[in-house]
Design a protein around this nucleic acid. Structure first.
Lengths: 122, 122
DNA sequence: CAGTATCCTTTACGATACTG
DNA sequence: CAGTATCGTAAAGGATACTG
């Protein structure tokens, strides 16, 4: 398998795979990627679509992903200003895998719920 | 797209997709799944393979994944005791997608590093 | 509307010591 | 060797208020 393990924390932070993955696999990043699949969204719309995320946290994640080149930020000076975020080609690449995982998770929810009950019950 | 968004925190916690995904997409869970791909490992060996994880955190994650049915825990009473962990068929299912993501991340490391420098520089 | 700043809580994690 | 318990720290996140 690929090298994703490390012996120290410093080594882990330098792991190339982890560095790239962390920008799309996190709880919020993944939701952002999926939310932008069908096209650009303005900040407010994106926040509304995601629902349970605060403005501050959404901004943080958007900036990190912009920095890594996963999405672009386009400003239309208004007034009022309109800022929209869109996935770059690079940002679209993991989409297929993330969707596959999401689909798998959806299909396995019943099984997992059953396993949890069985584990907790006795 | 599938429904992975939520309007409240409670709604998010009940999201079937998020519930299942959280057991394999977390930083540690993903490393555990990948580490067990080639077969069962004893606790100590698994800890050594992963390197930068503490005993406590590894135990926590193993228990959560065992609860969800992603892996089994087999005890061979010694002495000394030997406890080995192995993926279940359910636990193997996400492997293909996780490996695809890992492979993608490895291939894009250079691009992302470049993007970061460009973003930070000016 | 988009963005920043501040404060506070919670969660994840690390380190270490102890037990069968 | 595997597992538990305790304590402390650091990171993530939530709430809210304020600005152009």
């Amino acid at each position: 398998m690929l090298q994703v393990t490390a012996r120290t924390k410093e080594e882990a932070e330098m792991c190339p795979v982890r560095q790239v993955l962390s920008q799309v696999m996190g709880k919020w990043q993944m939701l952002i990627v999926l939310s932008l699949e069908d096209g650009a969204l303005r900040f407010g719309a994106l926040k509304r679509v995601m629902g349970d995320i605060t403005q501050r946290v959404l901004m943080e994640n958007l900036r990190k992903m912009e920095r890594d080149g996963h999405l672009t930020c386009t400003v239309d000076p208004g007034p009022p200003v309109a800022v929209s975020y869109a996935l770059t080609p690079l940002g679209r690449e993991p989409l297929v895998h993330l969707k596959a995982l999401t689909l798998w998770a959806a299909g396995r929810h019943a099984a997992v719920t059953g396993n949890r009950s069985r584990y907790d019950a006795p």
